[in-house]
Design a protein around this nucleic acid. Sequence first.
DNA 1: GCCGGCGTTTACACAATTTTTACGGCGTCT
DNA 2: AGACGCCGTAAAAATTGTGTAAACGCCGGC
Lengths: 228, 228
Amino acid sequence: MTAPARIVVIEDDPQIRRFVLDALGKAGCAPQEAGTARQGREILGAGDAQLVILDLGLPDMSGIDFIRALRLWSSVPVLVLSARVTEQDKIEALDAGADDYLTKPFGVGELLARVRVLLRRHGQGGDTESVHRFGGVEVDLARHAVKRDGADLHLTQLEYRLLAVLLANAGKVMTHRHLMREVWGSGQAEQEHYVRIYVRRLRQKLERDPTQPQHLLTETGIGYRFQP
Amino acid sequence: MTAPARIVVIEDDPQIRRFVLDALGKAGCAPQEAGTARQGREILGAGDAQLVILDLGLPDMSGIDFIRALRLWSSVPVLVLSARVTEQDKIEALDAGADDYLTKPFGVGELLARVRVLLRRHGQGGDTESVHRFGGVEVDLARHAVKRDGADLHLTQLEYRLLAVLLANAGKVMTHRHLMREVWGSGQAEQEHYVRIYVRRLRQKLERDPTQPQHLLTETGIGYRFQP
DNA sequence: GCCGGCGTTTACACAATTTTTACGGCGTCT
DNA sequence: AGACGCCGTAAAAATTGTGTAAACGCCGGC
């Protein structure tokens, strides 16, 4: 349940763009796309990109210049795709500030592997910062670690899974059936009683006063809701 | 790239080694050289390398395994050189922890450009201490040395590998399967029982009260977690 | 060859978790 | 008021996971 990597694909050829976007999509990313340098710069202006995949042959700007301009204000990793195979082209792009250079045609697998390398090194949001805090409790979903007032707390597997689903949908009302499907699997979506038993356990471990829950709230007749 | 870039070249073919060393030398680096994995590991043990250039076809060890082992205690960037050109080879190496993959034959210019990229990103920091301390125990991953209350302690290979994986992911819950894959290889990821036996051995050697472990903790139904 | 260390395999008692079952309270609707 | 549905609580039963011990086979050193 890692946060999707924020990747920006800047490529003018619609065919290759689709190819790259599909590959990233299947790998679980939610890439944004741009067909021109101008459009790409606009998206990057938001400042929350983790990786740029850049075609050097853009219609409205030299790729090298694009990288150089980008490097003036951003250190986001850049993976270059290019049809140009000469060594001089590669050296120029890499020295301009690119982090990797892949020549067309390339395989999906290698592209994704190189994307993983760059995200591993620089993708600050890759798997970190999935920490939720509320009322003295600290839940680190990535580490499977829960603390209460600084002290480690142990949750069983089901307790943990249930909490994770509620946290991921903070503020939303989750029906019994929905929680059952998410935690116990769609097989026994009927046994809605389990949810109650495990919500109780979570309350006893997490809530300051388990009889008057402040965060794990009951929505009578519907289900439960987590309130931060 | 300032004066003293500490680069280690691990390559068994003397011809290519000379080629690479010459190129780096002319670029103003003072690389160290190794002809075998064992020799390379010794040099890296000093812990002050900024970049590793690694040939995958070493005589005494699979390059992939070398990278994986290295990644347990060091985050030094690795540039792979290889005669193997298939996509699968590249993916494996990159996912094992390599930062770039260059197929032979390659040009001097491109090699140096890619070296500059890696040094630009990661060069300055160098390698940090890889010594872990907890509850009277001192583990120096780089030197493969473990002390308990000042006295040397001997760990077998598997014990050591398991400890290294747990230390490298301190605080995180590691599933049985994950540990099996990391330590025993993906072949027998099913035999999850091994992990238990070896965790027990580690506890007996490292924990003050092996029956009440303070650092090597069980996550029932999931796996184990190391807590500093 | 014999020995000792090491990694592997098997077996079993015990502990933790999950599931099942049961019961009492509270509010609402008739 | 009484019946009903929904919820919280409790604790026993069933299941699963874990710690421990002991035995086996492999290999290198003596």
